[in-house]
């Protein structure tokens, strides 16, 4: 069975201050053209099977949203392959992409910014349909009504504007829009992080129901480990543009291997009072993506780091049972002492 999505060595760089005048600087008495380049994603590979939910977790600036937007081709990736249902879409132009858009849709983080405030709900939901299919307007209207019902809204909502809805209802509209073209993959970029907890639960339940009904695969981006644990089949942990660990959900929570994953799991507050002391307490903060550390990206905060970590960048290695880790500790487990 082919994977729904297969990403290979995806890289995404952004050039800061792209204006010509901003790039000129004086160096040693000579004019010098310099580029300030941010490596938001530095070679990430993973795949998602049909009907599978893969979650990418990590803290702000780790590149998880950039991965999502590169795959949705909001950005043009700097390098790498993105195979959607077998077809590489990484370097297609926007026009060439059109036929593949219906296989992949996206749900956004901010329910207030992701809907055009000047469009009515029916036009928002129908937008992908109108752009990608030749449906007659009667069929479109029918489909919009069915979609709204599917996400828990009703037909009379179709004539309203986004500002007349609460955050949770707006996110439902965004989900209906994504579903409109029957995609096989939905990229969900922090879909519940802007919502109140009680509404968050409603949206998570809805997303799970829709997956069962339509056989969807999700790429689910989140910073919230408890949400990820609930929804994901498999989890990838990102740090500073690198994938440092991937594993099936239960495996990752029971046996995290990478020091960063362990720190992340132990730092997350929990309402469950019976919890042991944090295993790893991280000091300091994430370094700038403008100047990545040499070797392992995590070594500046890692309590185990030794000289090898500064010299050699660890590659993601298969540890069995579907778990892969990018850490030198796997070679020298004797150093892994608390």
């Amino acid at each position: 069975m082919t994977a729904m999505l297969e990403v290979q060595d995806l890289r995404q760089e952004f050039r800061l201050n792209p204006g010509l005048l901003d790039r000129i600087s004086m160096k040693g008495g000579r004019l010098h053209l310099q580029d300030r380049i941010v490596s938001a994603v530095s070679g990430v590979s993973f795949s998602i099977a049909k009907r599978e939910v893969l979650a990418l977790v990590g803290e702000s600036g780790c590149g998880k949203s950039t991965v999502a937007k590169a795959i949705a081709r909001i950005y043009r990736p700097t390098a790498g392959n993105i195979r959607l249902d077998g077809q590489d879409i990484a370097s297609l132009s926007q026009a060439e992409l059109l036929p593949y858009r219906s296989k992949m849709q996206m749900i956004f983080q901010d329910p207030f910014a992701s809907l055009d405030p000047r469009q009515k709900v029916r036009d928002i939901v129908a937008e992908p349909l109108r752009a990608q299919s030749g449906l007659a307007s009667g069929e479109v209207a029918e489909r919009v009504a069915a979609l709204l019902a599917k996400v828990g809204l009703n037909t009379e909502h179709a004539g309203r504007y986004p500002h007349q809805f609460s955050g949770g209802q707006r996110q439902r509209i965004g989900i209906a829009r994504a579903l409109s073209v029957n995609p096989g993959l939905i990229i969900a970029d922090e879909p519940v992080s802007a919502l109140d907890v009680s509404v968050q639960a409603q949206i998570l339940n809805l997303m799970m129901d829709l997956r069962d009904e339509f056989g969807l695969a999700y790429l689910f981006i989140s910073h919230d480990l408890s949400v990820v644990h609930h929804i994901a089949d498999r989890i990838g942990v990102m740090y500073l543009g690198f994938l440092v660990e991937t594993a099936p959900r239960d495996r990752l929570f029971a046996m995290p291997r990478h020091p960063y994953t362990r720190a992340l799991l132990s730092a997350a507050p929990s309402i469950n009072p019976t919890r042991s002391r944090p295993e790893i307490e991280l000091q300091g903060e994430v370094p700038s993506a403008l100047a990545l550390p040499s070797g392992c990206c995590f070594r500046t905060r890692c309590p185990y780091a030794w000289d090898r970590c500064a010299q050699e960048r660890p590659a993601l290695r298969d540890m069995g049972d579907g778990q892969s880790v990018a850490c030198h500790l796997t070679d020298e487990p004797q150093r892994d002492m608390p």
Binding site: S166, Q169, V197, S198, A201, M208, L225, S226, F253, I271
Partner: peptide
């Protein structure tokens, strides 16, 4: 109940219906 609890994973979260 709305907060997913990694220690007791349920197939569906118990949600509060409706809105404020």
């Amino acid at each position: 109940d709305s907060i997913p609890d990694p220690a007791h994973r349920l197939p569906r979260l118990r949600q509060i219906p409706g809105t404020v």
